[in-house]
């Protein structure tokens, strides 16, 4: 464990807490893409199958349970909670995310570290996580005004993988046989997708103005 990875995990956790706070405090999920939340639930379920087979550390196991439980709770809330689901922007959240799932599964079958069930699913989860934010970014552009909590949620979500890139650079230089090119390439793509959001987020922060994404 190194500081970059710890900061990455904490940033990721903060993003989830911000989203839970927004939904719980405002009883609303306006501006949040249910499709992105479903993709994240799929990412965690596909990646953390080793939760019961490979014990790495208490921290690792606890965080896996927290990520799986929180992502499923958010999807449940947005689909079933009688008050929250009424504020879901169903007509704006129209990204065909099943294509993302199919493309990532196809890519995972072609490119993975070892052609085994767990490795294919792990690669699938890495590829899917890289593109899972797309429905959310499309929804933000369509819904125009972005409320503060939603903006902060997306910002922390983007920042977490940027910390992971620093972690991979650090591990590359400090560990002998450290090869995670699947994660590195996907992580770079994932963080690059946030580039324009980060730009507009910084502008709104600098001008102390409302976060506006160009349509």
């Amino acid at each position: 464990m190194n500081i970059f990875r710890f900061l990455g995990d904490m940033t990721h956790l903060i993003s989830i807490l911000i989203l839970l706070l927004k939904i719980y405090a405002t009883k609303s999920c306006s501006g949040i893409s249910l499709k992105t939340q479903e993709l994240y639930a799929l990412v965690f379920l596909a990646r953390y199958l080793d939760l019961f087979t490979d014990f790495i550390s208490v921290y690792n196991s606890v965080m896996k349970v927290v990520f799986i439980a929180s992502s499923l709770a958010i999807v449940w809330c947005m689909r079933r909670h009688r008050v929250v689901r009424r504020s879901y922007d169903k007509e704006l959240d129209t990204f065909r995310h099943y294509f993302l799932v199919a493309a990532c599964l196809a890519l995972a079958l072609l490119v993975q570290e070892k052609f085994t069930f767990l490795e294919v699913l792990w690669a699938f989860s890495i590829y899917l996580e890289a593109v899972a934010i797309l429905p959310q970014l499309v929804l933000l552009q369509r819904s125009g005004n972005v409320d503060n909590l939603t903006g902060q949620y997306v910002f922390f979500l983007g920042a977490y993988r940027a910390f992971y890139i620093l972690n991979w650079i650090y591990r590359y230089f400090t560990e002998t046989h450290f090869s995670r090119w699947i994660s590195c390439v996907s992580g770079l793509v994932q963080t690059a997708l946030y580039a324009d959001f980060f730009y507009y987020y910084f502008i709104s922060w600098k001008n102390n103005s409302k976060l506006q994404l160009p349509a």
């Binding site: 990721h12 490979d54 790495i56 690792n60 896996k64 990520f67 570290e113 591990r171 090869s179």
Partner: peptide
């Protein structure tokens, strides 16, 4: 050895 190096991250 390289294997656990790739799966110890979240």
């Amino acid at each position: 050895a390289s294997n656990e190096g790739t799966k110890d991250e979240l």
